[in-house]
Write a protein that binds this DNA or RNA. Structure first.
Lengths: 234, 234
DNA sequence: AAAGGTATTATGTATGATTTAATACTTCAA
DNA sequence: TTGAAGTATTAAATCATACATAATACCTTT
């Protein structure tokens, strides 16, 4: 590693390309000027001269910010700071087929961690109407819990509603993102075979807990609801 | 100047820049040819002619894939397919300064949800050595829990270790990502003032639970550990 | 003053030239 | 034969310039 030949202005951080540097420079630039959402940033040519690079580099750096939802650009209006959408791009990358097994397994666990841990949010924000809706959803479920062949549609409906009740939109979007991977894991031979179907808390049971229980009892119920998954995991 | 192809992608009035189109075209192209990780893709000029756009557009599209970790390019070797890294780009987007208040609040909640819900993973994978390490960490903490001025370093050390114990690398990386935003929220006037410092489970108390308790008792202990945060939230 | 046309402007796209770094190739000497 | 040094080649990285496009502002005409 010959540090002598490296340019002075990119010593810290081992950044290789000018675009990488321009990207962070732009973000620093925004932070320096305290840009708020909606503010317009200088034109591409100005930024190019400011950063001492060509417009091509600036554009490719902006392209990255653009795709992360950090800026939005219109034809003549220029480029404006926007509220970055954290998860939209994650969704794009979330082709379960190209994720490695470890990550898929991680996601499988992650979902259960989330749903067990969201008890307090649920009880703080749930309304009677929510509970009624949940009862309506589970009303259509087959009552015999034995051998309830995983019904994807029903799963999304019920658990999605839970995420919605938390009032946490980031959380909700996580679900939309994680669920496909979750289903993928279930079908692929990534986990142990189904050990033994023990009795576990049904969707309806969970709603009952939401109606009459506490965050603590909910967490335990949800943990139990996932019992089969946990068994296949450990 | 092929105007025919430009009108080809007029689907449902989306804002379709050529780069957007090129991006998905590239992904389709890779999928068609069944590219596996490590395969090299054609040169930029070839792709340009293939997709019927200029090299500029191809580069800006590749730039997006590159930053999502879906491809990696070296100088002479060309561009190769790589294993996408889900979270690296999220980390970059995580500039607390430009996230809106709702998202920041969401993240604040999200962290607590995660740590409350991770009880089962912890108990499944924790070793005595982990517990010893945790005791070593909390040994340095001031014993009087009263008015423990939030010590960022200590927080990261302790809670980071917990994430590590879960053995879930995706989860661990989430922490690295969420923590800055979490601290940011604590300092900004986004939450209610500190209501009243009630007694709550200390770090040491959590370790005791990990040593002698169960996933269930841990969840409750962690919930209690966050009591002050929850009070400021609701 | 309102309608409509024109000029201006900043991004979007295209093209070619130049630089850079990695790889392949060649040469020559031990 | 080996291997070390130097050269050529390749493809990406960067730069510079020109033109296209669409949105805005400006101006003219009635």
């Amino acid at each position: 590693m010959d540090y002598a030949t490296m340019n002075d202005d990119l010593r810290l951080g081992e950044q290789t390309s000018l675009v990488d540097k321009a990207e962070t420079d732009l973000l620093d630039f925004f932070q320096d000027r305290q840009y708020k959402i909606g503010d317009v940033i200088p034109k591409e040519v100005e930024l190019a001269t400011q950063l001492g690079v060509s417009r091509t580099v600036v554009r490719e750096a902006l392209q990255r910010l653009r795709m992360r939802g950090m800026v939005d650009t219109k034809k003549k209006r220029g480029t404006v700071i926007t509220n970055p959408d954290l998860l939209s791009l994650l969704e794009k990358t979330m082709y379960p087929g190209i994720l490695d097994d470890e990550t898929l397994r991680d996601i499988f666990e992650l979902r259960m961690v989330l749903e067990i841990g969201m008890g307090d949010l649920l009880f703080e924000r749930i309304t009677q109407r929510d509970i009624d809706e949940l009862y309506a959803i589970v009303a259509n479920e087959p009552t015999n819990t034995e051998e309830t062949l995983f019904n994807a549609e029903q799963e999304i409906l019920f658990h999605g509603k839970l995420y919605e009740i938390t009032g946490n939109r980031t959380l909700k979007r996580f679900q939309r993102m994680l669920l496909p991977a979750f289903e993928y894991v279930q079908q692929s031979g990534l986990l142990k075979k189904q050990v033994q179907r023990k009795k576990f808390v049904s969707h309806r049971g969970l709603v009952d807990v939401l109606q009459h229980g506490t965050p603590e009892t909910f967490r335990n119920a949800m943990r139990n609801h996932f019992e089969n998954h946990f068994q296949r995991l450990f």
